[in-house]
Design a binder for these strands. Structure first.
Length: 254
DNA sequence: ATGACTCCCAGTGGGAGA
């Protein structure tokens, strides 16, 4: 079983690339972030024509998430239950017996800002909800754009970016707390080359210089850990014309 | 160098992203 996550940075712009990618990389389920579409404009028919069921939770201009799956998703949840939020950042559903949770974690802008405080509150709420989800669904995958670098290996310039957004102690403590629920960073279950990222800034020739961050992450629960066969970042789409600034990440469960 | 690009909604510019 293959699962994937991709921050597409506007599905209106990236739909052709998504369909191309799915044709080359068939998956059982996939979560998308930053669709940036209200639900009425979501291209459900095009995605269904490619052989996928799809549920989504969008808004105007910003954010927006979707869950694609070969089999229909059951018990779909939009956003974090009990956490009032006008930003569309979470979609979850059960696909072929696995609880799939897709998240577009808040950016946080900079430590000390209101947006950083929101990021911390959102992460607290996510963790409290996931504790319940894991109790109800031991086979769970949490994946998406975390907007957190788990540690310095995930940063192209860990000294220059120390304490900056995505690299703060507070964010990394939140990541560790999520892992502490009984989750495992699938990418780090395998030996990986150095300097592999999932996001490269559009500016500064960052992709050409391979200056990026690994912030798109797949966490698998204890009950799934032994079944993980592989996890990889697919940087090919970042070489496309008009690419998303993020690359897809794929996990294979045996 | 508080830059550089891309997307969006706007409306001949500005916010946000990370």
């Amino acid at each position: 079983m293959k699962l994937a996550t991709w921050n597409v940075n506007s599905l209106a712009v990236r739909l052709p690339q998504l369909l191309d990618w799915l044709a080359a990389n068939p998956v059982d389920a996939m979560v998308l972030q930053e669709t940036k579409l209200v639900d009425g404009k979501f291209p459900a028919a095009e995605i269904e024509a490619a052989g996928y069921r799809v549920v989504f939770h969008g808004q105007k201009t910003y954010n927006g998430v979707a869950l694609l799956s070969r089999e229909p998703a059951d018990a779909v949840v939009r956003n974090i239950p009990g956490f009032a939020d006008d930003q569309a950042r979470v979609i979850a559903g059960t696909v072929a017996g696995i609880r799939v949770v897709g998240g577009y974690f808040p950016n946080g802008q900079a430590p000390g800002t209101d947006k950083f405080a929101y990021k911390m509150q959102w992460l607290d709420a996510l963790r409290a909800w996931l504790r319940e989800e894991l109790a109800a669904h031991p086979k769970l995958v949490l994946m998406g754009d975390f907007n957190i670098t788990p540690d310095d290996r995930d940063v192209y310039d860990p000294i220059g970016l120390a304490g900056q957004i995505h690299c703060t102690v507070e964010e990394r403590n939140q990541f560790r707390a999520l892992v502490g629920l009984g989750l495992h960073d699938a990418y780090r279950m395998f030996e990986q080359p150095l300097k592999c990222w999932s996001w490269w800034d559009y500016r500064n020739l960052a992709f050409r210089k391979n200056q990026g961050l690994r912030i798109d992450i797949i966490l698998v629960s204890d009950a799934l850990k032994a079944s993980v066969q592989a996890c990889a970042i697919d940087k090919l789409p970042r070489k496309n014309e008009r690419p998303s600034d993020h690359a897809p990440v794929v996990v294979e469960l045996g």
